[in-house]
């Protein structure tokens, strides 16, 4: 084989390579879709992996852009917590994904690495019930403090109110709790 000049690795490729090197058994897969990369990590490796991605001189993923979760009920692993990291010097996005089982929906908080994970984690707890261990203030963020249930789970109903048409107008009118003075 001739020695051809290889194309320099992009930041995302370097990140994937670094993760595979340091956390070989925790990298459960690499998803590439429409030009965007998401590395599927085991939950034990999340905080060390993010620390590596943030501190490494080449990578410098110093911003947490997005933190959210997806519910795959009734499939297992039920939840997947998705992270989007951003590197200011290298101007790239990078995705991470941590699958969680429904019975043990717990994860270490990322606040130690990215303080801006505070409220997004509270929102994920509120909406999905995923607990973040080590979070200093894990309370409900968007729902009232005494609400039961986690709304964005797939087994939580939408809370749809029946629409009033002319055939059921009076019946629904009777049931509706109108306010008095």
């Amino acid at each position: 084989m001739e020695a051809v000049r290889e194309k320099p690795m992009s930041t995302v490729e370097k990140a994937v390579a670094a993760l595979r090197r340091e956390f070989a058994e925790s990298v459960l897969g690499v998803d590439e879709f429409r030009g965007q990369t998401q590395v599927i990590l085991d939950r034990a490796a999340l905080v060390p992996a993010c620390t590596l991605l943030r501190d490494d001189g080449d990578l410098r993923f110093n911003r947490l852009s997005a933190l959210t979760a997806v519910d795959y009920w009734p499939d297992e692993p039920r939840f997947a917590v998705a992270y989007q990291l951003y590197s200011l010097p290298n101007r790239t996005y990078f995705g991470l994904r941590v699958p969680l089982h429904g019975q043990s929906a717990e994860l270490l908080t990322l606040q130690a690495v990215f303080p801006s994970a505070d409220w997004p984690e509270r929102e994920v707890y509120d909406m999905f019930g995923i607990k973040f261990l080590g979070h200093p203030d894990l309370r409900r963020l968007l729902m009232p403090h005494d609400w039961h249930g986690h709304p964005l789970r797939k087994d939580y109903p939408l809370g749809y109110e029946e629409v009033q048409f002319s055939f059921n107008h009076d019946e629904i009118d009777r049931r509706k709790p109108y306010a008095r003075r």
Partner: peptide, 16 residues
């Protein structure tokens, strides 16, 4: 899954 970010007048608005 895709993630797209735009610049809203308030900052980075992203859609996952």
């Amino acid at each position: 899954a895709v993630y797209v970010a735009v610049e809203s007048p308030r900052g980075e608005l992203g859609c996952y």
